[in-house]
Amino acid sequence: MLFRKVLGISGFDVIGEAKNGEEAVSLYTSFPKKPDIILMDHRMPIKNGIEATKQILNINKKSKIIFTSADNSIKQEALSIGAKSFLDKPFSITDLIDIIKKVSINLE
């Protein structure tokens, strides 16, 4: 809820919010127009961020996924499987916006 507010203020359109990894994959699959950026947490019930990232990238390897986790230990794994960036928690709104922008530029 907080990130939706933060991203909304920053001018981003949040098109979906998932409570766990499985829902994230399902939501991604259901979008007719895929999101430009996906913010992915790691520790989630049912399916974690790494597994969800792998599945989404399997569906569309061009998906831009920014990993955000308080668990720094999975940073390397997240980047190695195709996450575009990794944000250590806690991070500032500025940091988040900068990373999104950076990843968005690469999107172009």
């Binding site: 907080l2 990130f3 308080a70 668990d71 928690k89 806690p90 991070f91 500032s92």
Partner: peptide, 12 residues
């Protein structure tokens, strides 16, 4: 992790 998550929420 957990405290960082808490701190993240407080910071945000």
């Amino acid at each position: 992790h957990d405290i960082n998550n808490i701190l993240q929420n407080i910071l945000s």
